[in-house]
């Protein structure tokens, strides 16, 4: 497994994603991008849908990418990488390429959970050999913090504002990791920016498999979550500790929870640190809503534990 030393050495040696981007100060996206790219030894080709990472890394005529990178539109990164990978296979067959090249997508939750879900599902079903990393910051950040299907219940978003009648987003978040797992692809995982070595290990394990691989990474957005700029790691860590965002893998259909918090940290601990949930602590309905959020976190955690029991890696 790649140690911090190896990751750091690779970062020194070959800087795949440079510092010349315009992501916000304190944004978690570059940490995830660098960790993923450093965990892969082979040459890579990267695709990104429209979103913060794309806009902040590719303003013509500059670029932050030192690896081949392609952006086409918002909803089609998985289809684009399908084409890149198919061309690779075709050129290999014709003897025009002999080296091993790996294919990676970095897509936001909007480009993955919502508008890009169909293209993603198609690419997974067809079995293209690529790694899809979802930089899940739980809203459409690039366009001004609109709600996505990854946005947690009650969070304030510009299209799900805290109003007199409706307090933020009414719906629960979609469980995309399980939807992806249902495609029966070889490798599926959840990770968080707070656990970078865990993420690097996951990437390395994933890349051992041929076919589609998917990692859903909780990627703090201080701007959209309304948290201090230096809190990205702490925020993601609390999400893991409260079991809101379990770190787990589904490898060839077998579940493994990578980290089980010893104590049950109530979800309030995470909610109360973020501006997007502030209203829950001011509104008289807040207590009841927090209880609902907690109940859903518990339900999903229990369900995951049971899946691990039934379809564990040893079982």
């Amino acid at each position: 497994m790649p140690s911090i030393k190896v990751l750091a050495e690779r970062e020194e040696k070959r800087v795949r994603f440079t510092g010349g981007h315009t992501l916000c100060a304190g944004c978690a996206e570059p940490m995830v991008v660098r960790t993923v790219l450093n965990a892969i030894e082979d040459p890579v080709v990267v695709a990104s849908p429209t979103g913060c990472l794309e806009v902040a890394s590719s303003r013509f005529p500059a670029t932050a990418w030192n690896v081949p990178w392609v952006h086409v539109a918002f909803e089609n990164a998985a289809a684009v990488i399908s084409g890149v990978e198919a061309a690779y296979k075709a050129l290999k067959k014709r003897g025009l390429i002999d080296r091993r090249i790996r294919f990676v997508v970095f897509g936001g939750d909007g480009g993955t959970y919502d508008i890009g879900l169909q293209a993603l599902s198609g690419a997974l079903e067809r079995g293209h050999d690529f790694l899809y990393v979802c930089l899940n910051n739980e809203a459409y950040m690039n366009t001004g913090v609109q709600r996505s299907s990854a946005t947690p219940k009650c969070a304030a978003a510009t299209t799900a504002p805290v109003g007199e009648v409706i307090p933020g987003k009414p719906q629960e978040r979609k469980d995309l990791t399980e939807i992806v797992a249902a495609h029966g692809i070889p490798y599926v995982a959840q990770a968080a920016v707070s656990h970078l070595i865990d993420l690097a290990n996951k990437v390395e394990r994933a890349m051992k498999y041929e076919g589609p691989k998917f990692i859903n990474v909780l990627t703090t957005c201080p701007l959209g979550w309304r948290t201090p700029r230096d809190s990205a790691i702490q925020q993601a860590k609390l999400a893991v500790e409260t079991r809101y965002w379990p770190l787990y893998e589904v490898i060839e259909g077998r579940y493994k929870i990578n980290y089980k918090p010893k104590e049950r940290v109530p979800i309030e601990e995470w909610l109360k640190t973020q501006g997007r949930f502030r209203h829950l602590f001011r509104d008289p309905r807040g207590k009841e809503l927090i209880a609902q959020i907690q109940a859903e976190v518990d339900r999903r955690w229990e369900s995951l534990l049971r899946k691990e029991q039934c379809f564990g890696q040893e079982g």
Binding site: S82, G83, V84, A87, K89, A90, A119
Partner: peptide, 27 residues
């Protein structure tokens, strides 16, 4: 010897063509 991508929509058909052409293939 063509790689055939039986895509799930025409949007993806053209998107995959773009990816493949940018990759260096004839599509």
């Amino acid at each position: 010897r063509t790689e055939l991508i039986p895509v799930e929509s025409e949007h993806s058909a053209m998107s995959a063509c773009i990816g493949a052409a940018a990759a260096g293939g004839r599509v």
